[in-house]
Amino acid sequence: MQNGMLALFISLFLSSASAAQFSADEVKAVYLFNFTSFITWPEDAFKKPSDPFTYCSFGNKGAVTKPLGEILLGEKVDERAVKFKTITKISDIKGCQVLYIDQLQHTNTEEILRKTKVMPILTVSDMNGFAKQGGAVEFSTKGGRIKLLINVSKIKDARLNVSSKLLRIADLINSPSEADEPW
């Protein structure tokens, strides 16, 4: 029985290492930030040239938002200022370029994905099965590492252009079989 029990019992010595190590949330946050270098949004994703590039987090649960907020501080994407906000209703989704839904949020992703189906929004989550469900990018944990699972057809629907560099390091689903696909 007492199996896991001690398991969590990591002493301070581990924590010393942990400080120098990265948490999964930190890695996810950096991924989210890096996406903008490898993905381009269609022009109609923004109303005005002066509109900021907007990261949205659906709900404030989950610890990704904290490092993400820190990373985004003072950053620019394609000459646009970067804004980071938390939304709580699907109706607030307009103006978001990246929508992150933390698995701890326990929200109805189906509705969100239906609503954003053809919108130029990059939907990202660490929820299991998110990409399969129709989300664009899923963070999956494999062998203690955070890997990307990209739903290619969803990206297409959203009219986002993803560089091959990003696709190369990711696992793809719903990928067109043609080898000469212009990604």
Partner: peptide, 19 residues
């Protein structure tokens, strides 16, 4: 990106601080 994909993470990151 490649480095990022190879970073070994403490999945229990949140927990760890608490440990």
């Amino acid at each position: 990106l490649e480095d990022l994909a190879e970073v070994e993470v403490s999945i229990a990151g949140k927990t760890l601080q608490k440990l």
